[in-house]
């Protein structure tokens, strides 16, 4: 067998490296790798076409005017096709939420971390269990045992800070990204 690193030419004219590989092996692997890379890159274009398109992303923020929402009232707005709960909390509700900061919570989080201004609670109105919309926005709705929201699908109870207190949901109602553009307007997203 070969003693050096240079290719050896065998009787039938094939050039072989000492490890037994041939030029043809190299070409075969290089061609396959080239083809596979091209196929993968093209495949990515097709997969990415199913991601949110530019017009969908352009609708990814919503402005909400809060001027008409009195203490104790709640409104539901749509953001990215999902309901967002905006509640103008009463002083009692705020006090209850702060008091429960030290209660036993499945997903512990102090009320102060869930609001930018104590009276305005902004939540994604999607139950963290399996995605139903909890009740509690209308005065006639059941608000559950903790005065916040109650999900009718599988019985999750949320408190006045939107925190999960009882039921199958694992997490608190999520707080979407939002900012006060002035005292009476927020921009969600």
């Amino acid at each position: 067998m070969a003693q050096s690193g240079s290719p050896q030419v065998s009787a039938d004219g094939t050039r072989k490296h000492p490890d037994g590989s041939t030029r043809r092996d190299f070409l075969y692997l290089a061609t396959t790798a080239f083809g596979a890379t091209g196929a993968a890159l093209t495949g990515w274009a097709f997969i990415d076409s199913m991601n949110p398109s530019a017009d969908v992303l352009a609708l990814a923020s919503t402005e909400v005017n809060l001027a008409a929402v009195q203490p104790g009232m709640a409104i539901t707005v749509t953001w990215r096709g999902k309901p967002v709960f905006v509640r103008n909390r009463t002083p009692e509700e705020i006090a209850k939420a702060k008091e429960d900061d030290t209660a036993s919570l499945p997903d512990p989080q102090p009320d102060a971390k869930r609001v930018q201004r104590p009276e305005w609670l902004v939540l994604l109105g999607v139950c963290t269990h399996l995605g139903c919309v909890p009740l509690g926005q209308k005065p006639t709705d059941s608000r559950g045992d903790y005065g916040g929201w109650f999900c009718p699908c599988h019985g999750s109870h949320y408190d006045t800070s939107g925190r999960i207190r009882r039921g199958p949901a694992p997490l608190n109602l999520a707080v979407p990204p939002y900012a006060f553009t002035n005292d009476k307007t927020i921009k969600i997203g």
Binding site: A45, F46, D48, S49, N51, S53, A54, D55, V56
Partner: peptide, 13 residues
């Protein structure tokens, strides 16, 4: 037109 302008790689497809 939306495919051509807004959908990711829609123009290519």
């Amino acid at each position: 037109e939306r495919i051509m302008r807004d959908v990711n790689y829609g123009w290519l497809i």
